[in-house]
């Protein structure tokens, strides 16, 4: 009787370990246009590779707001704000329509998109997007940001060191 209870307990512990492992191996989607995977949980970490909108990553562990992720052939760190638990689907289809109502899926390009923007531009020729397009091109590379912080003697916490 005691052996049986022991076996059940061991089986229970084993099952919860498997369940805990399954829970940690979460699949997430990239929710921004392009995101970098780095060698450390920091924006100043070396960029190992980049992933694109809708790409899937497997979460291995967490460190504050950073996730250690796996993609095919690469492992590294991403900031959590680049990821969503929603399954971002790049192309529509019958399956997509069914899952869309579950709230667990987002169809890329659906809703307010480049088609809507084009239609808006056609309706509002007085609104000029030239400077918005110029703004978007301004992306300061991480080494320049690091140099800016160092030259300004900024004692930053955590994520850019």
């Amino acid at each position: 009787m005691r052996t049986k209870r022991l076996l059940l307990t061991v089986a229970g512990v084993g099952l919860s370990t498997v369940m805990a492992w399954a829970a940690t191996a979460t699949l997430m989607s990239v929710q921004i246009r392009k995101a970098d995977i780095r060698d450390t949980p920091s924006f100043m970490g070396k960029i190992l590779t980049s992933v694109s909108y809708g790409d899937k990553v497997t979460i291995q562990s967490e460190n504050g707001a950073w996730f250690q992720v796996n993609t095919p052939g690469q492992s590294g760190w991403m900031h959590s704000s680049a990821l969503t638990k929603k399954n971002i689907v790049m192309k529509s289809g019958a399956g997509a329509q069914t899952s869309a109502s579950s709230g667990e899926m987002a169809l890329a390009g659906k809703g307010f998109n480049s088609d809507v923007e084009s239609q808006f531009k056609a309706n509002h020729k007085d609104i000029d997007f030239t400077w918005v397009d110029k703004m978007e091109k301004i992306k300061i590379p991480p080494p320049e940001i690091k140099a800016f912080a160092q030259a300004g003697h900024l004692d930053a916490q955590g994520c850019v060191k």
Partner: peptide
């Protein structure tokens, strides 16, 4: 943009779809 993009890294939401830009 250097100052603004540096600061954005310390927000709770450093990553947006197209990034932070200043003018």
């Amino acid at each position: 943009n250097t100052l603004g993009q540096y600061l954005s890294l310390f927000s709770d939401r450093p990553e947006t779809f197209g990034g932070y830009h200043f003018l």
